[in-house]
Amino acid sequence: MTDTMTVGSLNRINKTYSRRSMFLRRFGAHKLAVTGGIVLAVVVLVALIGPLLAGDPLALNPSQRLASPSFEHPFGTDNYGRDTFARAVAGARVSLLVGAVTAIITSVLGAIVGLFASYNRIADAILMRISDGLMAFPAILLAIAIMAAMGQRISNVIIALSIVFTPYVARIVRSAALVAKEQTYVEALRSQGASLFRILWINIFPNILSPLIIQATFVFADSIITEAALSFLGAGVPPPAPSWGNMLLDGKTLIYNAWWMTVFPGAFIMSTILAVNLLGDGLRDLLDPTFNRRK
């Protein structure tokens, strides 16, 4: 199924070698995408093995309050004497988890809603009006409202972000499917007695996979930012569990005394978002059939 990733570029590629190797070769040549991929891989690695190296992110140590970066505490400590490095690394797990799970949920929901809307006018009218309504709110306000209604839990953060971002994905999928639907092969399939299910999921779905993958990377980045913003506003991941956002919140009042409390989580957020966006941009270039790579 990986073959279907380059679907869009198909018509241009009139060569016989496999589309997968073609894609990998072009990806390798795309410096920004490669950079984004490497940085993201490092962050993921840190999130995975970091907690084994760093100490307990929740361990209080009153004698070591607000210690500046040292060999023992490379990122310093916070106002409870907790190790900032351990907390940032634990926060990476939270952020990546929230980003990845939200990206997966919105992709699945967005694909279902978008494809269905592309095929049924009544469903389209209803679903698109609902999504217009959701999109009319600034994402962060809507997320705060949902969190306020459901209570502060990581799972609720994911649910709130999924509600916020699904309409964006559904729109992209819908418009891609509307284009695919106009192709003669869809009419040909109908003339062969294909069911709606077979047309939508077996035949149109692979043709919308590239925009969906690209959109998923942006949702991934946006949910990390939005989660950080929510936590910063005190409506996200509840303390004492660390997240990059609530670490910024904790550091805010002490920024003149202990810059390390904000700079390190801030740097993590920035580099992760940058990496994911680079990757997403790169994928867009690589998967877009109308994109002609310059020499």
Binding site: V7, T184, R190, G193, N207
Partner: peptide, 20 residues
Amino acid sequence: RGNRISMIFQDPMSALNPVF
């Protein structure tokens, strides 16, 4: 459709799904 009555179309270029 496709069973007792079948149809072929003008444009053979787009009458097949490019991904299969």
